[in-house]
């Protein structure tokens, strides 16, 4: 807090607009940066492949049903991967679950 901010506070005035600008900018950029088209196409594809490779080491996935997407809600963007599992890699047949299995729900706020 600067001397100016202190005086403003004591007098009950609004804080300097540069602070407001900085905060608004940071929020809008956090949003913009993940909304970039480069992420939704190329990078997302690459990420999808790598995630699948890792998961496929442990379980057999129903590739037809795989869905990886970005979902944005309340200024937060999440990577949502829906990877239906057919069976474990050892061969034991599990009952076919088709319901959602959210494997990764991680923030990718850069």
């Amino acid at each position: 807090m600067t001397l100016r901010d202190l005086i403003n506070k004591l007098l009950g005035r609004e804080t300097a607009s540069a602070n407001t600008a900085r905060e608004r900018l940071q929020l809008v950029l956090a949003h913009d940066r993940v909304d970039m088209s480069s992420l939704t196409t190329d990078l997302l594809d690459k990420m999808r492949k790598e995630i699948l490779d890792v998961v496929a080491k442990y379980v057999e996935i129903d590739f037809e049903e795989v869905a990886v997407s970005l979902e944005t809600e309340d200024r937060m963007t999440a990577l949502v991967a829906n990877l239906p599992i057919k069976r474990t890699i050892s061969g034991e047949i599990k009952f076919k679950k088709t319901d959602k299995s959210d494997k990764t729900d991680k923030d990718i706020k850069k």
Binding site: T2, R4, D5, A16, S17, A18, N19, A21, R22, L25, Q26, L29
Partner: peptide, 16 residues
């Protein structure tokens, strides 16, 4: 305007 903090500072812009 920067001195009176009514404009984003050089550090703000560069940092962002």
């Amino acid at each position: 305007m920067m001195a009176s903090q009514e404009m984003l500072s050089i550090e703000d812009v560069q940092g962002i």
